[in-house]
Design a protein around this nucleic acid. Sequence first.
DNA 1: CTTATTAATTATAACATTTACAATTTAATA
DNA 2: TATTAAATTGTAAATGTTATAATTAATAAG
Lengths: 138, 138
Amino acid sequence: MPYTKYMKTLKDKKMKITQQRLEILRYLDENRTHPTLEQLYEFIRTKFPAISKMTVYNVISSLIDNGIISSMRFVNSTELRVDYDKSSHFHFLCGKCGKIYDIESGFDLLDHVKRNGHKFDEYTVNIYGTCKNCLKNK
Amino acid sequence: MPYTKYMKTLKDKKMKITQQRLEILRYLDENRTHPTLEQLYEFIRTKFPAISKMTVYNVISSLIDNGIISSMRFVNSTELRVDYDKSSHFHFLCGKCGKIYDIESGFDLLDHVKRNGHKFDEYTVNIYGTCKNCLKNK
DNA sequence: CTTATTAATTATAACATTTACAATTTAATA
DNA sequence: TATTAAATTGTAAATGTTATAATTAATAAG
């Protein structure tokens, strides 16, 4: 039963269990590539041809609102990228090949900044540079 | 001479000195509000009515390419935001009022992550939560 | 100081991502 | 099974960005 895990995830948040949500959750869980919604849509369509792009937007929006997945944007593009992995880690975008790498943080950044009375909930760290592979093939 | 400083900045990078660039640099220097290009355009237009929005895009793009200013995007919006301050600091976006606060980092994040053979050039840290003021008025 | 060269600015249009809306369909509940 | 509330769908509109080509302006050379 590959979907029971995701059914529980949705149920725990009192969200309705729909085929579209299950399929998208499964894809994100099994493909940790930080896809854009367009990429997500293109893939999901191969398994679920009738899905609407709007559904992808709606599903992702509700998953984010319920704290099930996280999201980020890089400076080089307006597109939202999503990530099934909510654990504390950074993202490294290679400016040459465009690949995104997960970078282990090893510490909680919020432990190192003064709050000044503000309430901090979450954070994203985006690192820009050139990846190992692109350095080699230069 | 309020513009000599910016003339030097451009000259050092071998960039042509234009009225549009000087006006935008001055605005960014004197207004550390991390404006969007739209906000920048609206203001600059009051002082320089003939300026084109494309010029704002072009000027910002060249200032970024030459390492004079930095930029970031938050997850709640597709818009690029720009920052005259290139020193190491984080950005905190209040989800209630939308205000952006500079947060002192006190340490260089890149000293704390394993490079794994990658070359890291820059990074942005975006923190999300609720600001002091909005907590108070709730 | 004038001219030539090169780059920047401008205006228009095209493109891409996201949001708004209303109608239809589906999931959960009684 | 019927009801209700929510999710999905399709269309269109809004927003932010990029592409292109013509005009204008800044720099360098004569």
